[in-house]
Design a binder for these strands. Sequence first.
DNA 1: CGAAAGAGCACTAGATTTGTGCGGATTCCA
DNA 2: TGGAATCCGCACAAATCTAGTGCTCTTTCG
Lengths: 158, 158
Amino acid sequence: MLRLTKRTEYGLIALVHLADQAAAAPEGAEADVVSARAIGDQFPVPRRLLAEALKALQQGGILDSTRGAQGGYRLARPASEISLGEIVAALEGAPTLTSCDGLGAAAGPGGCEVEPVCPIRSPLARLRKGIWTLFEGVSLQSLADRSVDPAALFTATP
Amino acid sequence: MLRLTKRTEYGLIALVHLADQAAAAPEGAEADVVSARAIGDQFPVPRRLLAEALKALQQGGILDSTRGAQGGYRLARPASEISLGEIVAALEGAPTLTSCDGLGAAAGPGGCEVEPVCPIRSPLARLRKGIWTLFEGVSLQSLADRSVDPAALFTATP
DNA sequence: CGAAAGAGCACTAGATTTGTGCGGATTCCA
DNA sequence: TGGAATCCGCACAAATCTAGTGCTCTTTCG
């Protein structure tokens, strides 16, 4: 029901935490890496799934990972340059916005063959695209900033 | 993955169709009711599920239903006064935004008992609230209007 | 009364999500 | 050099949600 998966939830929790770490780091210096275990110990989330989310974020180029002892994760870029769209895409896969993905599926692959029969032009496809555009306008930083009004999260992007 | 269900898709298809019907009705007069069968015949959607979506919309006060022969559905209000938020709420249930619905579930019902342990204050809750606020700003009319740019769907609400 | 159309109920199959276990690879530290 | 911490990869079970279908009942028009 228009919900993000737990996986994304865990990922966001970790990201906000990492963003905090990065913000707390001394000027100029890079923040220390944080291990999946350390994050899992602080929040009541299954450590294993958290690790999966972190891995996905690393593969998506959002996190840098360091292996071995004293290893862990760290934001690959400043939080202000990471968009929510990227995050969700990395955690939940592609936006599924290919052409007319509403009734299109019923028409089989290769494009929406029933285009004339589809006078609505899939409002959902337009809708999702709109949502996606929004997501790309929200940065991790604004999410991590607890002072931001939820309702203003999206609109405030001049 | 942040997706709306088929049920919502079917509902939206029907709603847009009904909005068209209402727009085509003679000035002042109410539009004719449209049967679920009639809609199902026009679009490649399972008639039965379409009916379920319509029923949900009726229970949500978005549609008026007329039973018996020559019965059918009709918008309960002008399309411009029906918000996308309402529609999605009617079709997919409540927004699931009760208190701290991120880590809150792990704390059991009755409120987020782990509040101090939750330094993120559930970014997801804020996020969903933001999305929801957006949805309430989009009218069925703007969805039915095919000339609206998807990306501008939300931002254009002065 | 019969046909049309909206409700209600139960059920099956399929997909997705969530969660877990185990072992391997890599790197730091003593 | 060995041990420990940590990130990775694969496979599997359980729970939940979604999609779809069948049958019956009630209501209303003709």
